[in-house]
Write a protein that binds this DNA or RNA. Structure first.
Lengths: 155, 155
DNA sequence: GTGCGTGCAAAGACTTTGCACGTAC
DNA sequence: GTACGTGCAAAGTCTTTGCACGCAC
């Protein structure tokens, strides 16, 4: 019963391996390497970054395999798309993680990460009311950072 | 002073035209047509859809112009990317709209839209604490819909 | 009249796919 | 030993860009 609380968390590789077995798929060196690279990479990443990280430590994988593995990891609920922009895919570990919420400035692009327990509580309550079981969430606030709040008043 | 409250809302075309003028850009028929198509299109859309909508009503625009106009409309704060997936860009009107929040089932992909005043209040409070001026937000809940909640307990 | 805008087609960026060989089970 | 996995390169999608002509200001 996967209730990803920090205490009862099983190692990610076990989670992934079990997922693969259930699907009749194989746990290969390449797939293990990709997962390890993700674990070691702190925060959101893109396919290309992962490839470079892996190359750096001498793990040779093709980009095709990375993309294929990323899809599997998503299906396994281990990573999720971060969806910063639609230009390219960004992913991040979610299994067993508290959601990271983000506030982004619409003028400068500056971002601030935060975590709100209150938000998680709200999420859980909304789910409960509808009979759904919460798994995670993404909250992005669009705002204007303090410096200057005009920018539209010059002719 | 654009404070998009439902009452004092000025027509979108005026907002856009003013934005363009401030940037030293021109308000062309094509740009007006794209904006109108967005207004008439209910909910999120992609560039291609917009093109078809416009063709259907006899407005001929090139895809390049649509993309270029969508970027301007984003900069003007009239639309925003919906970020459903990273495969392609989805946009939606935001100017003067209440944010739409969404709950998505991680197994079936089924989604439920909702709107939470409480969430908006939380957003405003977080912004206030940091001295930022809220413009909008996006909240996505990932959950499992009721039907069956196992699916991972075999093996 | 000038500079910005448009359409077209080509280029670009990211991702997926077909195929032959390799490997986990 | 079999079916799935991998790398490579080609193909696919969506988006951006260069250029010559046209239009808003």
């Amino acid at each position: 019963m996967p209730e990803p609380t920090p205490d009862t968390l099983m190692p990610l590789c076990s989670v992934f391996r079990r997922f693969l077995r259930n699907q009749g798929l194989k746990y290969t060196v390449e797939r293990a390497d990709v997962l390890q690279a993700i674990i070691d990479h702190d925060g959101p990443f893109e396919a290309e970054e992962l490839l470079l990280d892996m190359r750096r430590r001498g793990h040779r994988v093709s980009k095709a395999t990375i993309y294929r593995t990323l899809r599997l990891l998503q299906e396994a609920g281990i990573i999720t798309q971060a969806l910063f922009d639609s230009k390219q895919a960004h992913f991040q570990l979610i299994y067993g993680k508290q959601p990271r919420d983000v506030m982004v400035c619409m003028r400068t692009g500056r971002t601030i990460d935060f975590h709100s327990e209150e938000l998680s509580a709200l999420r859980d309550r909304i789910c409960r009311e509808l009979g759904w079981k919460p798994v995670g969430h993404r909250f992005q606030i669009f705002a204007m950072s303090p410096e200057r709040t005009e920018g539209e008043q010059e002719a």
